[in-house]
Design a protein around this nucleic acid. Structure first.
Length: 197
DNA sequence: ACATGGATTCGCT
DNA sequence: GCGAATCCATGTT
């Protein structure tokens, strides 16, 4: 297992979104290791992408998107859930990849504990399907904003050497995005049952 | 300051 | 497959 370095992330967002599929996201908590295979991603590409948080330019919230690739962009959505993004492309180019679903690999008990703690989410179904639940399962919060995947000791990516077959489709939940609504920038591992839809 | 609205989820059909 | 709840951080759209 090798850990992708800065160069892996400092490529166009679409390439990173595809490249992340089949890789393992590892989270080290006080209780142990949680890990999952990335099976669903979405790319958000630049200020002209009307679905992207960068569409209004640089703000306090999205500033990390304008930094170098490989850092985490985490934000609160609907007042309750966090979403996990990985910044792509080079400094000053605001691109990011939303992680939408993981296939559990290790730490199933910890995942269930985290979901139970959250209360709203039942622990017995669809463990890491959907970006909000995935963050609950991994016990991620605002303190991970700006975390560096290339050097962090509590969250990182490992390359399992897999090159899965990939399908592209329109992104989820962005009906407001006008001409960008139909862009096929959502990527899934072909035939995998752990994707969110 | 504060109204706004959302890169969702769940539960019901 | 669809509709509605939910609620706080964000940007002032």
């Amino acid at each position: 297992m090798t850990r992708p370095g800065r160069d892996f992330f400092e490529k166009p967002g679409i390439e990173v979104a595809r490249g992340l599929l089949g890789k393992i996201l590892v989270r080290k908590t006080g209780g142990g290791i949680i890990s999952g295979k990335i099976v669903e991603t979405e790319a958000y590409i630049g200020e002209e992408d009307l679905a992207s948080h960068a569409r209004f330019g640089k703000t306090a919230r999205n500033r990390v998107m304008y930094g170098p690739g490989g850092f985490l962009y985490i934000y609160l959505i609907y007042g309750i859930y966090f979403n996990l993004n990985i910044v792509a492309a080079q400094e000053s180019v605001p691109e990011a990849v939303l992680i939408r679903a993981l296939q559990p690999v290790a730490g199933l008990e910890l995942i269930k504990e985290n979901l139970e703690k959250f209360g709203r989410v039942r622990a017995d179904r669809n463990l890491m399907k959907g970006p909000g639940k995935l963050c609950v399962a991994l016990d991620l919060d605002k303190s991970f904003y700006g975390e560096d995947l290339a050097s962090s000791k509590r969250i990182w990516i490992e390359d399992a050497g897999e090159a899965p077959r990939i399908e592209a489709s329109p992104r989820i939940g962005i009906d407001y995005a006008g001409a960008f609504r139909e862009k096929p920038w959502r990527f899934t591992v072909s035939g995998n049952s752990f994707i969110s839809k």
